[in-house]
């Protein structure tokens, strides 16, 4: 029974990660073809062993080589990384004070505040991103409001720029940042801050020397939870970004849909995963350290 329980997460990993990954990896080794499905070679189980060896011989790493020949791909990876880093930073900047406020709020308010953070998930992600178009566009609510205030004379061009992409990412992933930081801050004993003040800290240094390091694990967890999916983000840049917003998710889409080149698209995805594995491993380490520190 116990073994069975241990097997469950491994089965999960196998079925939902490893098997799909191997399928994608296999496609990345094949060649594009005008066929159904649009790649070559294929192997059917009933064709037997000899066909399998022929099949395996036909696979190669050509598509990965191809990715290195065009600067589009590494530029797109770099650009995605940059956008993800900047967006994660801003999400932290917005998310931390919210998490902090929640953790310092009276106990009876906290479930409500938590609810408010989670509430947006009840609406479709797509609709929420679309709503930002209405807010950010030239004649959108934001510009109307700013012009009504008299802050600006002409509407700001925000939609279809990287700024809009950042706003979209910060908005969408904010709960992923708030929740782990909140859970770290909530555990923080208020008397630690009093002790720090008592020992000569101002409010600010107490925050910097006690609150911040003690919420570090939550901050790291939140940053990874935002950073990792942001790198591969496709919907937000395509809806809010401009033509010049270069992200690997969009490149992947074009490989898959415009070029119908499933093998190259798969190769792009495999490389993306390899890039993500580093932060994912770091994230796992952080989580483990977290658990050890608590245990």
């Amino acid at each position: 029974m116990k073994r069975l329980l241990i097997a469950v997460p491994y089965f999960w990993l196998l079925a939902l990660f490893l098997v799909p990954f191997l399928i994608v990896f296999k496609i990345s080794l094949s060649d594009v073809a005008l066929a159904r499905p649009p790649y070559f070679p294929q192997w059917q189980f009933e064709e037997g062993w000899s066909a399998l060896t022929d099949y395996l011989r036909a696979l190669d790493f050509e598509n990965f080589w191809f990715l290195s020949t065009d600067d589009l791909y590494w530029k797109a990876y770099l650009s995605s990384l940059r956008i993800a880093v900047v967006a994660t930073f801003f999400t932290l900047l917005v998310g931390f004070p919210i998490a902090y406020g929640m953790a310092r709020a009276p106990l009876e308010w906290r479930p409500t505040l938590m609810m408010l953070v989670i509430l947006p998930f009840w609406t479709s992600f797509l609709i929420r991103v679309y709503a930002w178009i209405g807010i950010l566009s030239g004649e959108g609510y934001l510009n109307q409001f700013l012009m009504w205030l008299g802050v600006i004379q002409d509407p700001l061009i925000i939609l279809n720029t990287n700024v809009a992409v950042y706003i979209g990412i910060v908005y969408t992933y904010l709960p992923f940042m708030i929740l782990p930081i909140y859970s770290a801050l909530e555990k923080l004993d208020e008397s630690l801050l009093e002790a720090a003040e008592d020992l000569g800290c101002s409010r600010f240094t107490a925050f910097w020397l006690v609150t911040f390091p003690l919420s570090k694990q939550g901050i790291i967890a939140g940053c990874f939870l935002v950073f990792i999916p942001t790198i591969g983000e496709f919907v937000i840049p395509s809806l809010l970004g401009g033509s010049s917003t270069l992200m690997i998710g969009k490149v992947l889409w074009e490989e898959f849909f415009n070029n119908r080149d499933w093998p190259v698209a798969s190769a792009v995805a495999v490389v993306l995963l390899l890039i993500l594995i580093i932060p994912i491993i770091l994230f796992q380490r952080n989580e483990q350290k977290n658990r050890e520190a608590e245990g």
């Binding site: 594009v32 005008l34 589009l72 530029k75 797109a76 033509s243 010049s244 070029n259 119908r260």
Partner: peptide, 20 residues
Amino acid sequence: YDARVQRVVTRLWTKIKSGT
């Protein structure tokens, strides 16, 4: 377009749009 030319076209289009 066949696959090879399609790739040229898509790539060109990306370059036109994003400058990359």
